[in-house]
Design a protein around this nucleic acid. Structure first.
Length: 975
RNA sequence: GCGGGAGUGGUGUAACGGCAGCCACGCCAGACUUAGGAUCUGGUGCCUUCGGGCGUGCGGGUUCGACUCCCGCCUCCCGCACCA
C-alpha cells in the first residue's frame, strides 16, 4: 500500500480532508472487509443436505439461484482488465440476488489441464502441476482482491485427482452405454450397454447396420467377435479417422493448429492427413436432440444460430448407384450411395464423385484406361491405379483447411469406371475429387452441373455433359453457371417416372417415392456435426480409465481403481520424427512410462497382464461437467448427490430444462465447449445421473475489452501507457505515433491489469467503472482516464454518509422530502431493472442521479435522512461491496450488507402528482404543460389548448385530429 | 459467397412506437486555492439573423407521431464457408 500512499501523497495532505474516500482509504477498507468475509464465511452457500449444509435453516425458504462463470485457464500471464468483466458481472448479479432473497450459489474453479502448461513443462523440465498450481494461486489472489463473493469451499481444479476421478467415471459411463435410437418414441436415449448385450442374446434386437462382419450373424460370432460388435455400438468408441499428423512435432494437431499451406503453426513442420485409430464420442447420436432443445434455452439468438449452423441438419435423400457395369469388369459391380438435398435433379446427374478417402475407391479403380480417354481425366498417369494413388497423396498433403481455401479450382481423377443413373440409364463416369468431403453425408455425390455451382465448375473443368432439369427464368445467362433457384422441372421424364412441370417440393416427393418403391434409395437427414475426436497424444490431460486385453479389446477399469492417476514421466514431450516421415506413428509421452503402461489386474478371471491406454483426454473433458461438481464438491461416493443436483440444477416445473440459472462466458466457446457439455449432460440425464435435460438454462456472452494501441514510424508498437495526447495527436518520447485499436494483449503493448487499477483507485472503483461502460454482453474500449468518473461517484456517495472533516456519520432520523423520496424509489426501480437485465450501466447511471440529487439537497453540514442514505448504500452494495459494507457498518449495522434486503420501490413514490407532457403540433413539440398525473385525454387537450403558444398555433387553423395520450403527450394535427 | 448482429454528440452510452442524447469521460467557464492531473458548481448535438431551423449511416414506406416497425441500399463487426 506504500505505493498507493505515495501516489496520493504527492498532494500536500493538509489540503485533503482527513476523512475523504481516497484510494488509500479504499485500499484499507477493502483489505479489512475481505479478511472479515473470509473469517465469517459470509459467502458460504449452504446446501440443503450433506457436509455443506450448515446454516441452511437461514435460507431454507429462499428460492435458489445458481450463477456461474466459464472458469479460467490459469496462464502465467495473469489477468488483464478484460478478464474480470464477466466475473464481475456474475458477482454483482449474485450479490444482488442474495440481497433480494435468494440462496445463491456462485462458485469458481480452474480449468487446468492442457497444452500451454505442458509446453512450458517441455521447455523447463518442471512438472506442469507446479507451474499450473502457481498460476491458479495467482489468479485466485487477483480475484479475491477484486472482492468477488465466491464460496471458496467449492473451488477445485480439473487437475485435482478428486475431480478427474469423476471425469474418468463419466467417461466410463459413456463407454458403458449405447444410443437406442428406437427409445422414447424414436427420439432416442442412451442406455447401459448391458441392455444391448441381453437384447442381442435374446434376439430381440439386431446389431446396428455395419457393425456385424460381412455375412455373419450375432449367434455365429465367438466371444471376441461379439465384443467387437458391442464396441461398435458404444457412445465412446475407438475408430480409425483421418487426422492432422505432424511427425516433426510428434503429435496430432487440431485444424486450428494447421496453417493454410498445410504446415504446423508451431515450428512450421509439414502436416499429413492420415488415418489413425482414436477414441471418439458419438455426439452425432444426439444431433437431433441438441438441435431441438436449443429452442428451450434462454440463450442469445446468435449463439443458438452458431450451434444450429454447426450441427448443420439437412434433409434430402440417399440414392444408390450401381458402379462397375460399364466398360470395366462386370464382376466388380458395387453399390455406391450418395447423399443429395436435391433428389429432384436426379435426371440431371451426369457423373459421380467420391471423396479420395472413400473406402470403395480401391475396389472400384479399374485396371486400365479405355481407349481414347480424355486426357483431363487421367491426371497424366498411365493407369487409373497410378492416377488415384498420386491424387490421394496430393489430397493427404493438403490440410482440410487448405482444401477449403485454396482457389477452389476443381481437381480430380477418373477411376476408369462408370455408374448407372437409375432414371436415365446413362453411364456416368466416377471420379475422386477433394471437393467432396469424406466426413459429410456418404462421402459421395452425384454430379448435377445444371443445378449445383460446384458441380458446374467440375463439369466445366472435365468436359462433362450438362443437363438442365429446372427451367431457369427468361433472361438467365445459360453460360453463367448452375441455376439453383426455383422453377418447373424439365428434361426429367422417362417411361417410368415424369417430373416435368412439377415444382421442387412435389418433384422431391415424387422421386423419393420412386426411389423407395424401386429400392434405389430413401429420404434421409444428414448432419454436418461429426463425432468428437477424444484422444490426444499429450501428457497433461486425464488418463483414460481403460486397459486393453490380449485381444487388444478395450476394458474399462473397475470404479474401485479410480482415479487412474497421471504417472510422472521424465519427458513430457511426445516423440518426434523426421519432418517428412509421413509413415511414422504418434507415440504419446505416457507410452514411455513403461512401469505404468502395463499392469496386472484381476478383472474377474484371475490376474492377467493388461496394457493401459496411453492417450489422454482433450482439454474439453474437464470443462464438460464442472458445474455439477460445484453443487457437491466434496462427495467421494458420487458424482453429485441427486438431492443436491435436483436442488441446484433440477427443473423448476415439469417440462422445464433446468440447469444453471446464469452462465456467463466468452463467445469463443459458442460451439465446442457448450456443445460438448450439453452432450455429456444429456447422456448423464438419459442414464439417470442428473435431473435436468440441459446444463445451462440462461447463457450470456460477455463482451470483450479492447484498447487503443500505438505504432511508431517504423510500424512497431510502443507501450500504450507511455503515450501522451496533445491536441488530438499522439506522441511517444516526443515522436508522433499512430493510434490503432485492438484486443488487449502483449503483442499490442496495450495491456492494463486489474492490479494496476486496484493500486491506483481501489477495487470498488475499478468494479464500478468496468460495469458502467455498457451492458454486460457488449464489447467496449478501455479508457483509464475515464476511471476517475467512477471514483468521483464513490467519493460523493461516501460524502452523503460521512462528514469528510470530522468522520462523523451525517445521517439523522428525519423524514426525507417528497422529491427525495421520489428520487430514491425511482432509482430503486431502475437499479433492479438494470441488475436483472445485466445492464449495470443503467443501474449505475440511476445511482449517480440519486447521489447527485442528495449531494445538492443535503449539502455538507446538513443531516441526511437515514432511510435515503441506507437506501443508497444498499443500492450500490452489489457493485461496490466493500464501500457498501463500510458505510452499512458506519450506519450502525452489525451484520454484513451482503445479507441485507435489497430495497423495493414503493408504488406511491413512482407516480407524480403532476406530470409535464409535451404538446405537439403536427408532430413537432411546441410546448410543455403540467397536468395532474391522472388527467384523461380531454383534460390533457384542455390544458394544451390553454397554453398561450399552442393557442397561437391553433388560432385560425383547422384542427383535423387531436391525439392525447394520458401521461405522455398531446398532438394537434392541423390540416 | 451464405447467415447473423450493429450503425445515435469529440468518446462510452441512454431512450414501453410518444419531449432524441439520461449518466459518465473529455472540453469550456467559475468557486476554493501559492498551485492543480484534487474537490465542488454551472455549461456543452449542429447551425442560427436568437424568431427558429436541422439532426439517430443513406433512400423509401407504415403511423397523428419512427432511433424504435417494414422494404431497398451503404459501412463495420461476428460466425460459417466446396456441407452435396
Amino acid at each position: 500500500m506504500s505505493q498507493t500512499a505515495s501516489q496520493t501523497g504527492t498532494e500536500p495532505s493538509s489540503e485533503v480532508p482527513p476523512h475523504r474516500y481516497t484510494p488509500a482509504l479504499a485500499q484499507q477498507i477493502e483489505l479489512a472487509w475481505q479478511d472479515r468475509w473470509d473469517a465469517e464465511g459470509t459467502f458460504r452457500t449452504p446446501n440443503p443436505a450433506g457436509p455443506l449444509s450448515e446454516g441452511f435453516d437461514r435460507v431454507a425458504d429462499r428460492p435458489k439461484a445458481f450463477v456461474m462463470d466459464m472458469f479460467p485457464y490459469p496462464s502465467g500471464a495473469g489477468l488483464h482488465v478484460g478478464h474480470p468483466l464477466g466475473y464481475l458481472g456474475t458477482d454483482v448479479t449474485s450479490r444482488f440476488l442474495r440481497m433480494d432473497g435468494h440462496n445463491v450459489l456462485h462458485p469458481m474453479g480452474y480449468d487446468a489441464f492442457g497444452l500451454p502448461a505442458e509446453q512450458y513443462a517441455v521447455q523447463t523440465g518442471q512438472h506442469p502441476r507446479i507451474t499450473t498450481e502457481a498460476n491458479i494461486e495467482a489468479i485466485r489472489a487477483q480475484l479475491r482482491r477484486l472482492g468477488v463473493d465466491h464460496d471458496t469451499r467449492r473451488t477445485f481444479a480439473t487437475i485435482d485427482p478428486d475431480y478427474y476421478r469423476w471425469t474418468q467415471w463419466i467417461f466410463k459411463e459413456i463407454f458403458e452405454s449405447w444410443f437406442d435410437e428406437t427409445a422414447d418414441g424414436g427420439r432416442g436415449r442412451a442406455r447401459p450397454i448391458a441392455d444391448l448385450v441381453s437384447e442381442l442374446d435374446a434376439g430381440t434386437r439386431r446389431p446396428a447396420p455395419g457393425t456385424l462382419p460381412e455375412g455373419r450373424s450375432w449367434a455365429e460370432l465367438d466371444e471376441v467377435g461379439r465384443r467387437r460388435v458391442v464396441d461398435a455400438h458404444r457412445l465412446a468408441y475407438r475408430h480409425e479417422a483421418p487426422v492432422n499428423w505432424c511427425p516433426g512435432l510428434g503429435t496430432v494437431l487440431s485444424n486450428e493448429e494447421v496453417t493454410a499451406d498445410g504446415r504446423s503453426e508451431r515450428g512450421n513442420f509439414p502436416v499429413f492427413r492420415r488415418p489413425l485409430t482414436q477414441w471418439m464420442m458419438r455426439i452425432t447420436a444426439y444431433a437431433e436432440r441438441l438441435l431441438e432443445d436449443l429452442d428451450r434455452l434462454d440463450w442469445s439468438d446468435s449463439l443458438k444460430h452458431m450451434q444450429r449452423n454447426w450441427i448443420g441438419r439437412s434433409t434430402g435423400a440417399r440414392v444408390r448407384f450401381t458402379v462397375g457395369t460399364g466398360e470395366g469388369d462386370p464382376a466388380a459391380a458395387e453399390t455406391v450411395e450418395v447423399f443429395t438435398t436435391r433428389p429432384d435433379t436426379l435426371f440431371g446427374a451426369t457423373y459421380m464423385v467420391l471423396a479420395p478417402e472413400h473406402p470403395l475407391v480401391e475396389t472400384l479403380t479399374a485396371a486400365a484406361w479405355p481407349d481414347a480417354v480424355d486426357p483431363r481425366w487421367t491426371g497424366g498417369a498411365a493407369t487409373p491405379g497410378e492416377a488415384v494413388e498420386a491424387y490421394e497423396v496430393q489430397a493427404s498433403r493438403r490440410s482440410e483447411l487448405e482444401r477449403q481455401t485454396e482457389g477452389r479450382d476443381k481437381t480430380g481423377v477418373w477411376l476408369g469406371v462408370t455408374a448407372r443413373n437409375p432414371l436415365t440409364g446413362q453411364d456416368m463416369p466416377v471420379f475422386i475429387a477433394d471437393y467432396v468431403l469424406f466426413g459429410y453425408g456418404t462421402g459421395a455425390v452425384m454430379g448435377v452441373p445444371g443445378e449445383d455451382q460446384r458441380d458446374w465448375e467440375f463439369a466445366q473443368a472435365f468436359g462433362l455433359p450438362i443437363v438442365r432439369t429446372v427451367q431457369p427464368p427468361a433472361g438467365f445467362d445459360e453460360t453463367a453457371g448452375a441455376y439453383t433457384g426455383s422453377g418447373p422441372m424439365i428434361n426429367s421424364s422417362n417411361e417410368r417416372l415424369s417430373l416435368d412441370g412439377l415444382e421442387k417440393d412435389a418433384a422431391i416427393a415424387a422421386v423419393t417415392d420412386w426411389l423407395v418403391a424401386t429400392g434405389n434409395g430413401e429420404a434421409t437427414t444428414t448432419f454436418k456435426l461429426r463425432d468428437w475426436l477424444f484422444s490426444r497424444q499429450r501428457y497433461w490431460g486425464e488418463p483414460f480409465p481403460v486397459v486393453y486385453d490380449e485381444d487388444d479389446l478395450p476394458i474399462a477399469v473397475p470404479d474401485s481403481m479410480l482415479p487412474v492417476l497421471l504417472p510422472d514421466v521424465d519427458d513430457y514431450s511426445p516423440k518426434t520424427f523426421a519432418d517428412d516421415d509421413a509413415d511414422s506413428r504418434p507415440e504419446p509421452p505416457l507410452s514411455r512410462a513403461s512401469e505404468w503402461t502395463t499392469v496386472t489386474l484381476d478383472l474377474g478371471d484371475g490376474p492377467k497382464p493388461y496394457r493401459r491406454e496411453t492417450n489422454t483426454m482433450p482439454n474439453w473433458a474437464g470443462s464438460c461437467w464442472y458445474y455439477l461438481r460445484y453443487a457437491d464438491p466434496t462427495n467421494a461416493e458420487r458424482l453429485v448427490d441427486p438431492e443436491l443436483d435436483r436442488y441446484w440444477l433440477g427443473p423448476r416445473e415439469p417440462g422445464d430444462v433446468g440447469g444453471v440459472d446464469l452462465y456467463v462466458g466468452g463467445v469463443e466457446h459458442a460451439v465446442l465447449h457448450l456443445l460438448y457439455a450439453r452432450f455429456w449432460h444429456k447422456v448423464l440425464f438419459d442414464l439417470g445421473h442428473v435431473s435436468s435435460e440441459e446444463p445451462f438454462r440462461r447463457l450470456v456472452n460477455q463482451g470483450y475489452i479492447s484498447a487503443h494501441a500505438y505504432t511508431d514510424s517504423r510500424g512497431f508498437y510502443v507501450p500504450a501507457a507511455e503515450v501522451e495526447e496533445r491536441d488530438g495527436r499522439f506522441f511517444h518520447d516526443g515522436e508522433p505515433v499512430t493510434r490503432e485499436y485492438g484486443k488487449m494483449g502483449k503483442s499490442l503493448k496495450n495491456v492494463v491489469t486489474p492490479d494496476e487499477m486496484v493500486a491506483a483507485f481501489g477495487a470498488d472503483t475499478f468494479r464500478v467503472y468496468e460495469m458502467s461502460t455498457g451492458p454486460l454482453d457488449q464489447s467496449r474500449p478501455w479508457e483509464t482516464k475515464a476511471v476517475v468518473g467512477a471514483q468521483r461517484l464513490l467519493q460523493r456517495i461516501w460524502r452523503v454518509v460521512v462528514d469528510e472533516e470530522s468522520g462523523a456519520v451525517r445521517v439523522a432520523d428525519v423524514e426525507p422530502d417528497d422529491d427525495t423520496s421520489r428520487a430514491l424509489h425511482r432509482a430503486v426501480e431502475a437499479v433492479r431493472d438494470g441488475m436483472t437485465t445485466l445492464r449495470f450501466n443503467i443501474a449505475i447511471a440511476r445511482i449517480t442521479e440519486l447521489t447527485n440529487h442528495l449531494t445538492s439537497a443535503y449539502p455538507p453540514g446538513t443531516a441526511v435522512p437515514r432511510a435515503v442514505a441506507e437506501g443508497l448504500v444498499l443500492l450500490v452494495a452489489p457493485l461496490a461491496p466493500h464501500l457498501g459494507e463500510e458505510l452499512w457498518a458506519r450506519l450502525g449495522h452489525d451484520s454484513s450488507v451482503a445479507w441485507a434486503s435489497f430495497p423495493v420501490a414503493e408504488e406511491r413514490w413512482l407516480v407524480d402528482a403532476t406530470v409535464t407532457v409535451a404538446v405537439q403540433v403536427n408532430g413537432k413539440v411546441r410546448a410543455q404543460v403540467a397536468v395532474p398525473a391522472d388527467a384523461d385525454a380531454a383534460g390533457l387537450e384542455a390544458a394544451a389548448r390553454a397554453d398561450e403558444r399552442i393557442a397561437g398555433y391553433l388560432d385560425g387553423a383547422t384542427v383535423r385530429r387531436v391525439v392525447a395520450v394520458p401521461g405522455r403527450l398531446v398532438n394537434f394535427v392541423l390540416s
